[in-house]
Nucleic acid binder design. Structure first.
Lengths: 219, 219
DNA sequence: TTGTGTGAATCCCTTCACAGCG
DNA sequence: CGCTGTGAAGGGATTCACACAA
């Protein structure tokens, strides 16, 4: 079909594809090109730990922005990937939970540099409320809904103990936030239109110990 | 076939299955049973966000330890899952990188409680070397190989800046470690027999912004 | 009767292979 | 030519459906 594609697409894209798109974007950001440079699917594949065919298939879901016989223009592909992943703009983020994980994230350099701007920090600990992390004052969750709504927060990073996570998530959803990065080791119950990404370190450790244990016993 | 299965298996098990096994184990740990209680695949499915058939298929890879018409004995299934995932024992872990992420992990309660014991902390910062986190002294990476070997470290948590990660990984592998939980945003090059689990927060944030952006534009 | 264990069917992702454009 | 874009083929994982054991 020769319909002019946009970077938006209705078809369902598998999570694995999205992870790979992130990788492609990451490799393009490494090589800062003068202007007209190009990359082939082959080169992208090597950096992204896949095959050239996979790269082409991944990109083809969103249009056809390569030149046959040449490859992809680096700067254009980068722009397109940013558009596709939705990182061609700033996202206002609130950090809920100012413990160790919260602090680690807040200081995480990639965080700010990729367009995620932390505009509020919330914690229930009275000791912490009122103290500052760089130029942000830690606030009580009492008025969470109006706080988030007032600032126009779209993403929430949930880094609170498991027992508090569900309530905070629900209140954030009520405040109209659009997505949650969840560090609490529970399955949040939120409306289907609010995507949740779970960061589950125990699970990843178990994947490791599984791989080690099984390998040792095989063959 | 009616060969008596062990919990070890040679066939290749997909990563998705392992993630689900972790979930099943997690839900079983929630409900602490008196003794003879049972769960059905149906119940496990609800907690694990899958289907009953999927639960049965997952478990069947490792043997058949359910009773027809009844379900699975909670305590036995829990024991089996721990065996399968390799968490029926202690793992000696070294933390390489004593920054924010390292500190967050070190304090992470689930970490210790699931059998991962941190036996060494390493950081290159002279300011930090010699200081203590609870009862562990932060050590220089100068003698990393002999340090890890001497302590019998099996797992390494890599929480150092990207530029230092590859070198530290290689030296840890030389010291005979068996797996790496990697927080550095690079693809580590290590021998195939050393499994690596990448924790990539930027990628997860991008998965969120993708989901939000695409949803908004669909229908 | 209930709920497991499992071949068979289905679905979806990846890989192949090549037509076609620059 | 060289390399993309894409139908078709292939392979894996999930779901179905039912025989069978408790």
């Amino acid at each position: 079909m020769s319909v002019s594609h946009s970077t938006y697409v209705t078809r369902r894209i598998p999570a694995s594809t999205i992870r790979r798109l992130s990788h492609y974007l990451r490799s393009l950001e490494d090589l800062d090109d003068a202007g007209g440079e190009t990359v082939s699917s082959e080169e992208l594949a090597i950096r992204g730990q896949t095959t050239a065919a996979q790269v082409r298939k991944d990109l083809s879901h969103f249009g056809s922005f390569g030149k046959r016989g040449l490859g992809y223009k680096v700067d254009e592909l980068r722009r397109r990937l940013r558009q596709i992943l939705g990182v061609d703009r700033k996202w206002k983020v609130a950090l809920i939970g100012a413990g160790r994980i919260g602090s680690a994230l807040f200081e995480y350099p990639a965080f700010e540099s990729r367009g995620y701007e932390c505009v509020a920090i919330v914690d229930a600990d009275p000791q912490k409320i009122g103290t500052r992390w760089s130029n942000l004052e830690i606030q009580s969750p009492d008025q969470l809904e109006s706080l988030l709504k007032g600032l126009g927060v779209e993403l929430v990073i949930l880094a609170v103990p498991a027992r508090a996570a569900q309530e905070m998530a629900e209140r954030a959803v009520k405040a109209g936030i659009k997505g949650i990065l969840n560090f609490a080791p529970i399955r949040l119950k939120v409306p289907a239109h609010v995507p949740v990404e779970d960061v589950n370190l125990v699970m990843q450790l178990e994947a490791l110990s599984f791989a080690i244990t099984q390998r040792g016993s095989a063959e």
